[in-house]
Design a protein around this nucleic acid. Structure first.
Length: 303
DNA sequence: CTTATTCCCTGATTGC
DNA sequence: TGCAATCAGGGAATAA
């Protein structure tokens, strides 16, 4: 599931490859009727060729291509999308729903098994991006902003972290990891968090996302970068998809509950239900010796 | 305004 | 072993 660290990894890889390039032609699979959200697929294929790429930026989980003539190409990978940059004549990829050919012979292939991904070509991206909350990694999400957000919502804190209008870029992996790092139970009502708990959560979000970015993202099922390579952070998560395995900090079995329709993984001892103890947890795995002592069976990509 | 639920989609996993 | 049911989840739509 591409979340902020995965999308940012793709952005950083693509920028030097694509800056200055122009699109030459476009193909969109008739089998993916929801892929192009705006304008019509016909106008999309007509308006894109000839446009030159300036900047490539990111907002939340959206990739934003700044094009000549004042247009913006927005890309959202949703669940299983990948944006592959392939050289001329590269072998075919699976599940390719659109191909955007470039003037150096290379092409961008939008691959997407589950067809949830989406593209937009717009003169003004704000109708799509305007409702997103602040960015957690560029100083946009301050502790006081997070406190205001949580104070007026009684929904579980996990739901608030997943709400892109509250803050932009977290998905199921990093919401679970941030709550563990902050020592907070995912079902705690957001408004029940104390000021120091909110500060811990703010700190945890930044640390978790930065650690994942250092690892070029997490590949649990389908995520690959623009070259088709997997990230490494799936080997360093503390709770996500570790149900039944021992907590690296205390040894308790990681539990799973449904929150906001999503699986939520947590340590019942490190993330107690009520207010109280809990503290900032380590991010990115334990030292090798201690981890080996706790893990009973090899902990590869579990589940 | 809020929160909870359903739906989209298809390959992998689970259950009988 | 085989086949059907269930699961996974980002976000839009819908319900309450």
């Amino acid at each position: 599931m591409p979340e902020l660290p995965e999308v940012e990894t793709i952005r950083r890889d693509l920028l030097p490859l694509l800056r200055g390039r122009a699109f030459t032609h476009v193909w969109v699979s008739p089998d993916a009727p929801r892929l192009v959200q705006a304008p019509s697929p016909a106008d999309f294929a007509r308006l894109l060729p000839g446009r030159r790429i300036g900047d490539v930026s990111r907002r939340g989980k959206f990739l934003v291509f700044h094009l000549s003539g004042g247009l913006y190409l927005l890309v959202h990978l949703r669940m299983t999308g990948a944006l592959l940059h392939r050289p001329s004549g590269a072998p075919p990829d699976r599940y390719v729903r659109a191909v955007l050919a470039l003037d150096d012979g290379s092409e961008l292939r939008f691959s997407d098994l589950r067809k949830f991904g989406a593209l937009w070509l717009l003169p003004d991206p704000s109708p799509v991006l305007g409702r997103l909350g602040p960015e957690p990694l560029d100083g946009g999400l301050t502790p006081s902003l997070l406190r205001e957000l949580t104070a007026r919502r009684r929904a579980p804190i996990k739901s608030v972290l997943l709400d892109q209008r509250a803050l932009a870029g977290l998905g199921n992996i990093y919401a679970d990891e941030a709550l563990f790092a902050a020592g907070l139970h995912p079902q705690r009502p957001a408004s029940s968090l104390s000021v120091s708990e909110v500060e811990r959560l703010h700190e945890a979000i930044g640390r978790v996302l930065t650690a994942a970015l250092d690892d070029r993202g997490a590949s649990f099922s389908d995520y690959v970068d623009a070259s088709g390579r997997e990230g490494r952070h799936q080997f360093r998560v503390q709770v996500f998809r570790r149900t039944g395995e021992p907590c690296y900090v205390c040894g308790r079995e990681i539990a799973r509950v449904k929150v906001a329709g999503r699986s939520s993984h947590f340590c019942p001892r490190c993330q107690p239900e009520g207010r109280g103890e809990g503290g900032l947890r380590q991010v990115g795995g334990l030292p090798r010796a201690r981890r080996d002592a706790l893990v009973t069976k090899p902990n590869e990509v579990s589940q």
